[in-house]
């Protein structure tokens, strides 16, 4: 951790701030959420990395999609993602968001979450252990340092693609588009 290198803080305080204060939306998607309470409580303390859970997506900048995604959950995930302020980072947790995982031939789950929401990184496993979450957080720091964690920029620039995918699987969406779609 380069949290105590004052020179780096003075050069780019914004990036260092985003790295060492990742506030996670406490959104309990699927089976992966069972791994999150041990991470944020006393046994594997996530607060020493600066990661705390917050209750409102408006206050958060990290979104972990923990487990399988059904159609109903996809609506809530899209709505929560659009409520978050920029810059925001998403992490896919478990193998279900990557390629469908255990539910690869189900009629009700989403197999490739990347088509509907931009994902910055994946954590493989059918539920990953808490140590894997910490490795993911430190890897996310490296990505933020190099400027490669740009999911939100991709969402803004390719919004027509994402919105069309969302409408194809969910039908007509009730909320207006986040960015202007002509």
């Amino acid at each position: 951790m380069d949290r105590n290198q004052i020179a780096k803080w003075l050069k780019e305080p914004g990036k260092m701030g985003q790295k060492y204060s990742l506030w996670a939306t406490y959104f309990c998607t699927g089976c992966g959420i069972i791994e999150v309470p041990p991470v944020i409580t006393a046994r594997w303390d996530a607060e020493r990395f600066g990661v705390i859970p917050v209750s409102s997506p408006r206050q958060a900048n990290l979104f972990m999609i923990t487990g399988f995604v059904t159609l109903k959950t996809l609506k809530a995930i899209i709505r929560t993602y659009e409520l978050m302020p920029e810059p925001k980072y998403t992490v896919g947790f478990g193998s279900c968001p990557i390629n469908g995982g255990m539910y690869w031939d189900s009629y009700n789950t989403i197999k490739h979450l990347d088509k509907y929401i931009p994902i910055d990184g994946w954590i493989a496993g059918c539920m990953p252990r808490p140590e894997a979450i910490f490795i993911a957080v430190t890897h996310l720091w490296t990505l933020i340092d190099k400027g490669m964690a740009d999911g939100y920029i991709r969402y803004r620039e390719n919004y027509r693609y994402y919105r069309r995918n969302q409408e194809m699987v969910l039908g007509k969406l009730e909320w207006p588009p986040l960015y202007p779609v002509d």
């Binding site: 949290r3 914004g14 701030g17 060492y20 409580t41 006393a42 303390d45 607060e47 020493r48």
Partner: peptide, 28 residues
């Protein structure tokens, strides 16, 4: 609070880091 809960807790300058991060976010 963290030490009473038997864990390590964030550094003491963590609220300052939070405030710096919050100023770089674009809210509604």
């Amino acid at each position: 609070t963290a030490r009473i809960h038997w864990r390590y807790g964030p550094p003491i300058t963590q609220p300052l880091i939070d405030v710096i991060k919050l100023f770089t976010q674009r809210s509604v």
